[in-house]
């Protein structure tokens, strides 16, 4: 490929992303009421964790493992944004894609179907972030979080939530593609999401976990999509830890992309669905 052709291809891809993202913003903004109802419903989960751990902290004389109720509040308020960044195309959607032949139509396009998912959900995130701001304000008024954010932390956080978004998109795509081989996947998904709940920092800041759990979570992707971005903003990580965290995210993005490419190539060879 000549340099000019490569340039043109990159430009076309950027155009594709821009267009799909803009479509997602316009489409999802129409459903702002439904989007909001969904986000409000999502808030009960972190509020429950926050209340439980604040109670424990107070019973222990003000802090658990050095975390005060104010810091728990900060953790679980940032949690709500990171949780929203973690919403990507669901693996449960793959069954419908394959059974109803949507995938056939996607195959006719000249770009790999993952680009559409990545662009669409990324566009949606901008709507979600706008809707999230007032919610965060209300939660902050009620639960009084303590924040100490440095400029570096703010920058790293802005990058890390998109790293988290990419990693989780790739992982759930790989998980979803299992549907190429079998449609009895609900038990597998259940196990995956349970492991994620326990090992990502979604349930509780990972420092509260036993040390062996912490060690396991370091070598799995879950923590880098959830606990790490939250701790960047709500925790007190050293600059070195921030950069190491970003480096691990880059590794997982690369690994995830390679996995998606590999499993896709194997899976698509088995694909034989109806078209329409």
């Amino acid at each position: 490929m000549t340099a000019v052709a490569a340039d043109r291809r990159a430009g076309g891809m950027a155009d594709f992303y821009r267009t799909v993202m803009r479509t997602a913003v316009i489409e999802q903004f129409q459903y702002r009421a439904a989007n909001y109802a969904y986000m409000v419903g999502m808030i009960t989960e972190p509020v429950i964790y926050l209340v439980v751990w604040s109670t424990v902290a107070r019973a222990q004389g003000g802090a658990v493992e050095g975390i005060t109720p104010g810091e728990f509040a900060a953790y679980y308020i940032v949690w709500t944004l990171v949780r929203n960044m973690n919403i990507v195309f669901t693996p449960y959607g793959w069954e419908q894609r394959i059974r109803e032949g949507h995938l056939s139509a996607m195959l006719l396009r000249p770009v790999h179907p993952i680009h559409y998912d990545l662009a669409f959900f990324a566009g949606w995130k901008f709507v979600v972030i706008v809707l999230w701001l007032p919610l965060a304000a209300v939660l902050s008024l009620v639960f009084r979080p303590t924040f100490a954010i440095t400029p570096l932390e703010a920058v790293v956080f802005t990058v890390a939530i998109w790293g988290a978004y990419l990693i989780r998109s790739f992982m759930l795509w790989v998980l979803g593609m299992v549907t190429f081989w079998t449609t009895r996947v609900s038990a597998l998904y259940e196990l995956y999401f349970t492991a994620e709940l326990l090992l990502s920092g979604r349930l509780v800041p990972l420092v509260l976990m036993p040390t062996w759990v912490l060690a396991v979570s370091n070598v799995l992707p879950f923590r880098w999509t959830f606990g790490f971005p939250i701790e960047v903003l709500a925790g007190d990580l050293a600059p070195r830890e921030l950069l190491v965290g970003l480096a691990v995210q880059v590794l997982w993005v690369a690994l995830g992309a390679a996995l998606v490419a590999g499993v896709w190539r194997l899976g698509i060879a088995r694909y034989a669905a109806v078209g329409n």
Binding site: V52, V56, E65, L203, V204, L208
Partner: peptide, 9 residues
Amino acid sequence: LVFSHTAQL
């Protein structure tokens, strides 16, 4: 997990 950090809630 909760009760590894406290005796009562």
